[in-house]
């Protein structure tokens, strides 16, 4: 589990490259460092659910990213807030 305020990095993983998948982690935050805002609850893993496989419940977090961490940004304080499952997060 990650705590609110903890620094995390989205895994720089590309399972799309190896076969059919259903991924709820946008491309543009793969490998990007952000901050956990809060744990939103536990939800069935959509990567299994989409293929009618038994889907384990996984913690889902609201994670905040500075826009400037993703793109050149004239307003560096602007942010993105994204729901990301725990198995996509790591400690940098």
């Amino acid at each position: 589990m990650f705590a609110s305020g903890e620094t995390v990095r989205v895994k720089d993983a590309w399972p799309e490259a190896t076969g059919p998948v259903h991924i709820r982690t946008p491309y543009y935050v793969r490998g990007v460092v952000g901050e956990v805002v809060r744990h939103l609850g536990d939800f069935p893993n959509p990567e299994d659910l989409a293929f009618a496989r038994p889907a384990e419940r996984r913690p889902l977090y609201h994670v905040r990213f500075r826009k400037s961490a993703i793109w050149p940004e004239p307003k560096p304080d602007d942010e993105l807030l994204i729901e990301i499952f725990e198995h996509w997060l790591e400690r940098p």
Partner: peptide
């Protein structure tokens, strides 16, 4: 306004 932060919420999962 520049003094206000824009926070884009990408609704990617269960909420």
């Amino acid at each position: 306004p520049d003094s206000v932060k824009v926070r884009v919420v990408d609704s990617t999962a269960d909420y």
